[in-house]
């Protein structure tokens, strides 16, 4: 699969949630084999997400998030994507009186491998407010008013696929994680996920204004025009597609050809050595 995407012209391939570690020691995790195989034929950056945290093997051995990440890097990953642990890190940063502990996976992994190796994966969910003064989070004025005609909204951070909503804004989370050593933001959107209706531009622009690290737009891509729109309406550094490629509705090449026909600068690789 990864090789197929590489050959179609993907600028990067991201693996998410391929493995859970519940039943096997981390060193035998199937993800490592998937990566090793992919890295042999995919000559673009590879990112792995899901399970980058302190784990305990079935025999009781503790494996730190840094060690888990090291296994991935050695198997051929260029970056790891940290999701729920980014929320934990930001929450403890705030609980600590806005001070870094030095022990979170974002900090330990970026210190050892550089900030460019650490992507945070954020799952924001939109909340509406009518009175901007009554909100402690960074707000935006929205063009898509809420059910009661609210003109303002903010995004709260969620985990567990949107099921758990945290008392933390996505804007604030990204700023904290950048301070801790994140090098890139993979920006999902719970309201758009799986909708195939296009990206949430307001969210992307808000997060771009929060951080100076690159932001990858995710959630909502269903057809090539969505990629054109996201780059023309936001300052996103990259855009990610999953289901539309997985279901075979479009290839990466279809998307890039479309983007180029609409004047966007995309990489078209050589066709042979």
């Amino acid at each position: 699969m990864a090789e197929k995407y590489y050959k179609q012209g993907a600028d990067e391939v991201t693996f998410l949630n391929i493995t859970s570690f519940r039943n096997s020691p981390i060193r035998d995790a199937p993800m490592l084999d998937v990566l090793k195989l992919a890295a042999k034929t995919c000559f673009v950056p590879l990112t792995v997400g899901g399970g980058i945290k302190d784990v305990v093997d079935p025999d009781g051995t503790k494996v730190s998030a840094l060690e888990v990440a090291s296994l991935y890097f050695r198997a051929g990953a260029d970056k790891v994507s940290i999701g729920s642990d980014a929320v934990n890190a930001a929450e403890s940063y705030i609980a600590n009186g806005n001070a870094a502990s030095g022990t979170t996976p974002i900090e330990t992994i970026s210190k050892a491998y550089g900030v460019q190796a650490v992507v945070i994966s954020v799952d924001p969910k939109r909340f509406y407010v009518s009175d901007p003064k009554q909100c402690k989070y960074n707000l935006i004025e929205t063009k898509v008013p809420g059910p009661q005609g609210e003109k303002y909204c903010y995004y709260k951070v969620t985990s567990q696929g949107g099921r758990k909503v945290h008392d933390l804004g996505a804007f604030e989370l990204c700023q904290i994680c950048e301070k801790l050593g994140a090098g890139e933001v993979l920006l999902n959107c719970i309201d758009k996920d799986g909708s195939n209706s296009g990206y949430d531009f307001e969210l992307i622009n808000q997060i771009k204004s929060a951080v100076s690290i690159p932001v990858i737009a995710s959630s909502g891509a269903g057809k090539p025009v969505h990629f054109e729109e996201v780059f023309k309406n936001t300052k996103a550094d990259a855009a990610l597609g999953a289901g539309m490629f997985h279901r075979g509705e479009y290839t990466v090449k279809d998307v890039k050809t479309y983007m180029r026909e609409h004047g966007l600068l995309v990489r078209i690789d050589d066709t042979q050595l």
């Binding site: 699969m1 990864a2 995407y5 179609q8 012209g9 993907a10 600028d11 990067e12 391939v13 991201t14 693996f15 998410l16 949630n17 391929i18 493995t19 899901g50 696929g161 990858i216 995710s218 990629f227 780059f231 550094d237 990259a238 855009a239 990610l240 597609g241 999953a242 289901g243 490629f245 997985h246 990466v252 998307v255 890039k256 983007m259 966007l264 600068l265 995309v266 990489r267």
Partner: peptide, 12 residues
């Protein structure tokens, strides 16, 4: 360039 990333998601 405008980066296009393809994602393999097991949940998907």
């Amino acid at each position: 360039t405008r980066r296009v990333i393809a994602c393999l998601d097991r949940n998907q």
